[in-house]
Design a binder for these strands. Structure first.
Lengths: 156, 156
RNA sequence: UGACACCGCGUGUU
DNA sequence: AACACGCGGTGTCA
């Protein structure tokens, strides 16, 4: 995949490990926060999932491998996104999909199945290692905080 | 029934009497063409049938009563809809239903029986008066023509 | 199992 | 304003 991954260069050691993620596709999408994905060939939904995957991978390095900032100071992560699609998928639909063989409500195959499986595996691994992972949906109006992080991360 | 019926305000006298019909339910459906039905309490299937009934009633006034545009210039009507349910029902299933006492393939009563009967009576009456009635199923992709009529009829 | 319709929500791009 | 991508639900039939 030809993703561009954004991560903050310098982060406060005591920062609350809540993750703001965002995905964008094509030439005008360069939003990011803790983790952002920009890809020109994927669908918008795919970039949202890939951003979540990258964020959870960071969480793995942080919590399990202790590569970032020294581990052990926090108890879980919260992924905040404006994608109701992503939140509903990871908090509701995945459980049905794993039961029914990844079929849509109209019995068609789930389109981003592989990415969702990858994300789910990473999340479940964290959960089993006592690192709760939560998905929060935040609305467009409350993105002032996100914008600030975007500017800080991209140096704009 | 609390239907709203749309018909064109001014129609060319020589217009081809092919009917584009459409039904929608709830608050966001105000598509129409020659005949459109909007209802907030019926099912989507019911509105499709009701739109067909309204269209055939217009055909009655046009062909049999001569109320519209002067009769006698055309030889039949074609109802174009995107509802495979309506087309299959009127071109295939009704004949079985009239034979088997309006029973589904799993021996349940046909849900919109009364509306189908009303429509069938109107259609048969036209047919017996040498006015052929045909149902065509048109797909979503070829709705450019329909959209133009919708805009003209609704004044958007 | 398949088909069609209707409705709702969100995202992305121009 | 337009396009496309994704999901859920209900109503109907074969």
């Amino acid at each position: 995949m030809s993703h561009r991954l954004y991560t903050p260069n310098s982060v406060d050691n005591t920062m609350d490990p809540r993750g703001l993620i965002d995905g964008a596709c094509s030439n005008n999408g360069n939003l990011d926060a803790w983790v952002g994905i920009v890809d020109g060939s994927q669908t918008s939904q795919c970039t949202e999932i890939c951003a979540a995957i990258a964020a959870v991978r960071l969480a793995h390095q942080f919590f399990l491998n202790g590569e970032f900032w020294g581990a052990g100071h926090v108890k879980g992560i919260i992924l905040m996104t404006n994608s109701a699609y992503l939140v509903s998928a990871m908090t509701d639909w995945v459980y049905k999909w794993k039961r029914n063989g990844w079929k849509t409500s109209i019995r068609k195959p789930v389109v981003n199945m592989e990415d969702f499986i990858e994300l789910d595996v990473l999340v479940q691994y964290l959960e089993q290692n006592c690192v709760p992972v939560r998905f929060w949906c935040i609305d467009r109006e409350h993105n002032t905080f996100v914008d600030a992080l975007v500017k800080a991360a991209t140096g704009l």
